[in-house]
Amino acid sequence: MNLDISHPGRPGPEELVPSRYAVKVGEIDVLVVSDGVLPLPTAMLGHNVEPSARAAWLKDMFLPQDAFDWALNVVVARSGGQTILIDAGLGLDPELNLPRAGQLVKRLEAAGIDLASVTDVVLTHMHMDHIGGLLVDGVKERLRPDLRIHVAAAEVKFWESPDFSHVSMPPGFPDALRAAAKRFTKEYQSQLRLFDEEYEVAPGVIVCRTGGHTPGHSVVRMASGGDRLMFAGDAVFAVGFEHPDWHNGFEHDPEEAARVRVRLLRELAETGGQLVATHLPFPSVGRVAVDGDDFRWVAAFWDY
């Protein structure tokens, strides 16, 4: 892997904003890469609360009332000679018409990261915006034949017969999610490396099942030289600091997801470790502070 964090390069002519951001976690190199953005209805932020409460939060955050763009963040980590891709972005789904997402492959190339250099993939869960990049035509052929894909056994089991009874998604999403997970399992079955609760993928890089968002949802904890960083996947959303009890529309077990969210935010506040999450505004690097009964996201000052 050619991950030169000291010379991040320049955006291409069509890239007017940065799409990657490098962080050092002790001896572990971490690169946050943007897969683009996903426009979704704002009701997805808290479908269990009164519309007026949601509208007030959106107004306070200077966000539109109807729909706004969710970030799609992916992480590449290098530790112990291994190159680990954590989640794989949305890929391409023409049925959903999401042209500003699915940018991962070209942005990895722009960062000088060859797909053939990736030794391991970790999936926080199997929603299509976390696995779709590996389903893009031509990608599998560019990956190593001995690639290891780490995912919780409970996640694979769930998608054999997924339960959508507690979600609140836009039309078309349940079918698209179901189809993507089924196709992914079929195409990558021989490369899946299942774990029950946690697994050390590389030195200082441990994937841990949390459940909640999906039964096998997992986070990745990185620790080296006293530094800590957690990639929280879909356990934490922007609204979740002030309102951790708000149910996200994509949570298959919303009540458990809220309990997981509070537990992880408390952990981050206590340890002072850095947080990166899929749908926090890019690059989403920050820390968590306790603010009364709520939490507060403290965005990192960009390091140039």
Rank of each mutant, 00 (worst) to 15 (best):
R10W: 07
I113W: 05
I86G: 06
Q82W: 08
Q189R: 15
A110I: 11
L143D: 00
G272R: 04
A289T: 14
L143K: 05
K140E: 00
W302D: 11
F241T: 08
E50Q: 15
L177Q: 13
V121K: 04
W246G: 03
V219K: 08
L147G: 05
G112Q: 07
R221V: 11
L58F: 01
E251Q: 15
R78F: 04
T42L: 09
L177A: 14
D175A: 15
L3H: 06
V219A: 02
S52R: 09
G26Y: 03
E255P: 09
S19G: 13
M1D: 10
E27T: 11
F250S: 13
G233F: 02
R178L: 02
L40D: 04
R183K: 15
A152P: 03
H47V: 09
N48Y: 07
K157G: 12
F173I: 14
P18M: 01
L38N: 05
R259S: 06
R263H: 09
N2S: 15
I131L: 11
G9P: 08
D146Y: 03
V207M: 03
V239E: 12
D291E: 12
D175Y: 07
V220Q: 03
G249H: 03
L265V: 01
V74P: 01
R100K: 13
K59F: 03
V219Q: 00
S6I: 08
W70G: 02
A235C: 14
V288C: 09
G46T: 09
A88I: 04
E50P: 10
R10V: 08
V220K: 10
A258I: 07
G91A: 00
L58Q: 03
D69H: 11
W297H: 14
T124K: 04
G26I: 05
S52T: 12
P281L: 10
G292K: 09
G138H: 04
F237D: 01
S19Y: 15
F173H: 06
L38T: 03
V207E: 00
H7F: 13
K182A: 14
D66V: 13
S117M: 04
A180V: 05
Q274G: 14
A110D: 09
E256I: 11
A67S: 12
R20E: 07
G46A: 01
P203H: 02
V262H: 03
D93S: 13
D253I: 07
H130V: 06
F250Y: 14
V288A: 02
E155S: 12
D4T: 14
G80A: 09
V167E: 01
D245Q: 15
T185M: 14
P203F: 00
H252Q: 11
G133F: 05
E251G: 10
E160C: 10
M1E: 12
V239D: 08
D35G: 05
A232K: 09
M128A: 06
G172R: 09
S52P: 07
L92Y: 14
T185C: 13
G138N: 02
A179R: 15
E270W: 09
M222Y: 10
A153I: 12
V105N: 12
V75W: 06
S224L: 12
P244D: 03
V276D: 00
